[in-house]
Amino acid sequence: MTGLVNFFDILIATIRDVLPIAIILFGFQMLVLRRRMANLRQVLIGFVFVILGLAFFLQGLEQALFPLGKLMAQQLTAPEFLGLDETAGAAEAHWQQYLWLYLFAAAIGFSTTIAEPSLIAVAIKANQVSGGAVGTWGLRIAVAIGVAIGIALGSYRIVSGTPLHYYIIAGYIVVIIQTLYTPKTIIALAYDSGGVTTSTVTVPLVTALGLGLATNIPGRNPLLDGFGLIAFASLFPIMAVMAYAQLGEWQARRIKQRRLREMEN
């Protein structure tokens, strides 16, 4: 019964989130464009599906995955699990002690990204627009690998206590260099994939991980060190998607060369 009441609350909250968007869309449609939409009925039914789907999705996440995931993030960052005693400083803790933590960070980054609805949306569109050249799964896996690396490295940053902006600035330099060597058609999509990764599923779990780490590791301040994981998770997919495109291009070139050689023989 409480589940049903909960679901109703979430449904109301979802409708409240969608309402301003719907007002903007239909307001401009009716007042500025002043044109009847061709398939208004279908679009409205689609909106109902979106609202219901999101409400179910959020309710399920909050009932099942979030409590467990957050609890696990806390347990994996707890001083007892990491083998830190009260007297030992962070400098004495070896990185091996954190191995499970980094693995968890990477795994949770990868798996939440695969389930992220906004990434599914962008992948569908990219596949459609590119005429199938950009594979839905290829793009999603590339982005998920990027997020996995980003979250793991971001956790390492919190553990080691190095300043966030060094990593981000270094990341920017890599992105700029990669941009020069990536096929032009993929650049905009790669930049976009940075922003879409961190949404409904990823943000709550990753935030719990970051704050857990910054609270438990001696010498870390939640204010200075707890944030920043999302920034990592938005930067690394850009590199991963460009690398994926470069790999695809390289492979296509190799196949072409092999064909040429075979033809010569």
Partner: peptide
Amino acid sequence: LGGVVMVVVGLTLFVHGLKTGLFPIGESM
């Protein structure tokens, strides 16, 4: 298990709504 079933159902409905509602209205506008 109940939560996971809800997530699966929700994602399915959302992706359907995406293709029939959000994408068409964005493009038509």
